[in-house]
Amino acid sequence: MGINTDLLHKHQLHAPLFGDYKPVAKAHISPIYQTSTYILDDFDSAVYLNQHVDKGFVYSRFGSPNCDELEKKIASLEHAEAGLALASGLGAISTAVMSVIKSGDHVVFGDVIYGCTYTLFTHILTHMGVEYTRVDTTKVEEVEKAIKPNTTLVYVETPANPTLKISDIQAIADCVHSHKGITLIVDSTFASPYLQNPIDLGADMVVHSATKYLNGHGTVTAGVIAGPKERIDKCRMPYLQCFGAVLDPFAAWLLMQGMKTLGIRMERHCSNAMKIAQWLEKHPKIEHVYYPGLPSHPTYEIAKKQMHNGFGGMMSADIKGGEDAVRTVMNNVKVFSLATSLGNVDSLIQHSPSMSHFDMTPEERHAASIFDGQVRLSIGIEDVEDLIADLDQALALI
């Protein structure tokens, strides 16, 4: 796949270094503003800044120079007007969602999404009078069929966790925006802005767990939202202001250090993952491989059209022998680490049915192709032959 030069030109390093705040010392790396509050010049400016928090800094729950710099970089990466930094991916998701919905509304979301997002929609928002319909978002006609007069949100995760289903963002956006008053939010965590830009394809807002590929080193928990300034302002005030999912300045600083290598890391994640997916697909103890870069993947054609620079570093695989076989593999890998995260430079393995998606019933999981013998692999940037050898020796013990 060709390099997207426009994306590289808009890489976050070209974004304003300090936003509107000019430090006295011109440090090459931004300083960390580890303070909870900011001194205001006079009464009039204090009143103004407390009511217009996007114009300056008052209190770190509303914003800080480090978060401001991060938000501008995220907006640049996602080709959006504005960005918002939050304390976790779920902080970003819940803040974006709550800024759109109210009691009595109806939400449409994918049948395969992150387990905690599923819990938000099915176990929490239902107590607030919000209805939902789960559909296969790879089929636009199902999205259209699910829309009701009180639908205010369509939520799409693509690539989807953990089966890597790819939904056609542009087609869904056209469908959603043919109706009045419906917002399209896309979780693009598995792709990162290096591989996919939902705003360009018609999404109203995009969310990321920045803990994952944006940081890349497992050193922070963070989330981001990008979209039109009017929507981001609403997410900040009153939702972030009142819910308090605030990213601290040091975490924002760490996140930006990781983002500097996003492009080069993603290139290695993608190349390693493709080789491992092709190898696993031929392995006699593997029943099925879920990777959007394989022609055998049911949404391969959508991935080719929608993603640029590669197909990502995430995949899942069904191991013959079910959960017992999974236990053997996960207890015997030596290079892969057993951990319930993803997007790190280090390769990770987890069992989605009992870990990230345990809140779903077995029937719901199986209907979504999340089977008992399924492992999710986050392919790191290690030597690919070492990763293949590690999986091979673990699979041989089944």
Score class of each variant (00 low, 15 high):
residue 31 P to T: 10
residue 257 Q to V: 06
residue 106 H to T: 07
residue 291 Y to L: 01
residue 372 D to I: 11
residue 202 G to S: 08
residue 313 G to Q: 04
residue 238 P to Y: 08
residue 331 N to E: 15
residue 102 K to G: 06
residue 160 A to F: 01
residue 200 D to S: 14
residue 234 K to R: 15
residue 35 T to I: 12
residue 373 G to F: 07
residue 367 A to W: 02
residue 319 I to N: 06
residue 298 P to Q: 05
residue 50 N to S: 13
residue 283 H to I: 05
residue 344 N to G: 11
residue 365 R to L: 14
residue 55 K to E: 15
residue 386 D to R: 12
residue 340 T to R: 13
residue 27 A to F: 08
residue 34 Q to H: 12
residue 111 D to I: 10
residue 293 G to R: 03
residue 326 V to R: 00
residue 228 P to D: 13
residue 382 E to Q: 15
residue 64 S to Q: 10
residue 121 F to S: 02
residue 194 Y to L: 06
residue 225 I to H: 04
residue 35 T to W: 07
residue 101 I to E: 05
residue 156 V to S: 00
residue 350 Q to M: 14
residue 47 V to D: 08
residue 346 D to T: 12
residue 344 N to T: 15
residue 24 V to F: 14
residue 171 A to L: 10
residue 147 I to F: 00
residue 172 I to Y: 06
residue 77 L to E: 15
residue 126 T to P: 06
residue 323 E to M: 14
residue 275 K to W: 01
residue 99 S to L: 06
residue 257 Q to F: 02
residue 180 K to P: 07
residue 304 K to S: 07
residue 88 S to A: 11
residue 129 G to S: 08
residue 84 L to T: 08
residue 216 G to P: 03
residue 151 T to I: 03
residue 162 P to D: 10
residue 87 A to S: 15
residue 75 A to D: 01
residue 364 E to R: 12
residue 138 T to V: 09
residue 91 G to T: 04
residue 106 H to P: 07
residue 246 V to M: 09
residue 14 H to W: 09
residue 133 T to C: 01
residue 320 K to N: 09
residue 359 D to V: 15
residue 21 Y to M: 13
residue 363 E to C: 08
residue 304 K to M: 10
residue 131 E to T: 14
residue 384 V to D: 03
residue 13 L to E: 10
residue 308 H to C: 14
residue 308 H to F: 13
residue 385 E to W: 07
residue 378 S to I: 03
residue 39 I to K: 14
residue 220 V to T: 09
residue 168 D to L: 05
residue 49 L to M: 05
residue 256 M to H: 02
residue 310 G to D: 01
residue 62 F to V: 09
residue 237 M to Y: 11
residue 8 L to M: 12
residue 312 G to F: 00
residue 338 L to I: 10
residue 264 I to Y: 10
residue 366 H to S: 14
residue 114 Y to F: 12
residue 233 D to W: 08
residue 242 C to G: 11
residue 250 F to V: 13
residue 225 I to P: 02
residue 336 F to R: 00
residue 218 G to D: 06
residue 384 V to R: 05
residue 139 K to G: 00
residue 12 Q to H: 12
residue 355 M to N: 13
residue 252 A to K: 02
residue 139 K to H: 12
residue 281 E to A: 15
residue 152 T to G: 04
residue 386 D to H: 14
residue 103 S to Y: 04
residue 66 N to I: 01
residue 355 M to E: 15
residue 207 V to Y: 03
residue 27 A to W: 07
residue 36 S to M: 11
residue 44 D to K: 12
residue 239 Y to Q: 00
residue 265 R to F: 00
residue 187 D to W: 01
residue 296 S to H: 07
residue 320 K to T: 11
residue 203 A to T: 04
residue 48 Y to D: 10
residue 99 S to M: 07
residue 159 P to Y: 02
residue 351 H to S: 05
residue 357 H to E: 06
residue 109 F to L: 04
residue 138 T to Q: 06
residue 327 R to F: 13
residue 269 H to V: 06
residue 328 T to N: 12
residue 152 T to P: 02
residue 105 D to C: 08
residue 345 V to Y: 07
residue 241 Q to P: 08
